[in-house]
């Protein structure tokens, strides 16, 4: 492992694979030889259909599952070591929290697990509860929380030790539209603060808004990866962004383009949406799978 890549990457996986044994003879491939890197201070979107291996990837990265093959590193440290998780926050796919604790107690509990205590911890708990908008419910037990409220408490708990890296598995699932926008804005704010974020989501509009790079998983394999802007740029078309030309000069150039056989379609940014790209890629993948 060369030093350059291990210090500038927040997450790095090499041939990371996970097979689940579901019965004596059958096994399910959760993840198949995944190689990918999330750089520091990047927002990375992990996309894919249900059961494609997104949550499995996150659990492997956290050392919750033992890989069948390959390895994962966090900030250059093998995820087998507990130290690799010192500066990581995790929002699980489902609210795996204690029903008998109140919202406040939950955040405090996870803060203590990160070694926090005293005034600093109490201030942080209040700050986070306010941030996720649960002040009115902070003393209620989680057993009585709604889906969206649980999601919010999950987010607060993930951020309790102010981690450098956040692994968010569907942070907006079950959250109302306003909460959803708040979470999007929060992710952008966290990026400005220099955090790294790995985001799994099915809300493609939102992913397009916040992610620098995306990867699409299918059947446990990475089938497309790259810079969001680059991926969404249509290479068969070309766009000039011009400043300071007069109306007359523009129409002159327009005529010239026509003379050379070009055709001006429209002005503005010629991008497809991530949604279209996603659907297209996944359909291709399905075709490939059927072809095997």
């Amino acid at each position: 492992m060369d030093m350059v890549s291990s210090t500038s990457s927040a997450i790095e996986t090499r041939n990371l694979s996970k097979h689940f044994r579901v019965s004596l003879r059958r096994k399910v491939i959760g993840l198949d030889k995944l190689n990918f890197v999330v750089r520091e201070n990047e927002v990375y979107g992990l996309l894919g259909p249900n059961g494609s291996g997104k949550s499995t990837t996150i659990k492997l990265i956290l050392g919750l599952y033992q890989p069948t093959e390959g390895e994962a590193r966090l900030f250059g440290m093998n995820v087998e070591s507990v130290s690799s998780r010192v500066s990581v926050g995790f929002l699980p796919e489902n609210p795996y929290f204690y029903k008998y604790l109140s919202g406040e107690e939950t955040v405090r509990f996870f803060g203590r697990l990160c070694g926090m205590r005293g005034r600093a911890l109490e201030d942080k708990v209040s700050e986070l509860i306010a941030m996720v908008g649960l002040e009115r419910h902070r003393h209620r037990r989680l057993g009585g929380y709604s889906k969206g409220m649980l999601q919010r408490i999950g987010l607060a708990q993930a951020m309790v030790q102010d981690p450098k890296l956040l692994l968010l598995d569907e942070p907006t699932a079950g959250v109302d539209p306003i909460g959803s926008i708040e979470i999007r804005d929060m992710i952008l704010k966290l990026k400005k603060m220099g955090k790294t974020i790995l985001l799994c989501s099915h809300l493609l509009d939102q992913v397009q808004d916040v992610c620098d790079r995306i990867g699409i998983l299918q059947y446990g394999k990475m089938i497309l990866e790259g810079d969001v802007k680059e991926l969404l740029t249509r290479k068969d078309q070309y766009q000039y962004v011009i400043e300071g030309l007069s109306q007359e000069a523009r129409s002159q150039i327009g005529r010239q383009i026509g003379d050379k056989g070009g055709r001006i379609l429209r002005e503005g940014s010629p991008q497809t949406t991530l949604e279209q790209l996603f659907l297209q890629t996944v359909r291709q993948g399905d075709n490939r799978q059927e072809g095997i």
Partner: peptide, 14 residues
């Protein structure tokens, strides 16, 4: 069973 152990071991806990 409730997987409450996941978020705990996701923190730096041995």
């Amino acid at each position: 069973e409730n997987r409450t152990i996941y978020p705990i071991l996701a923190k730096p806990v041995f």
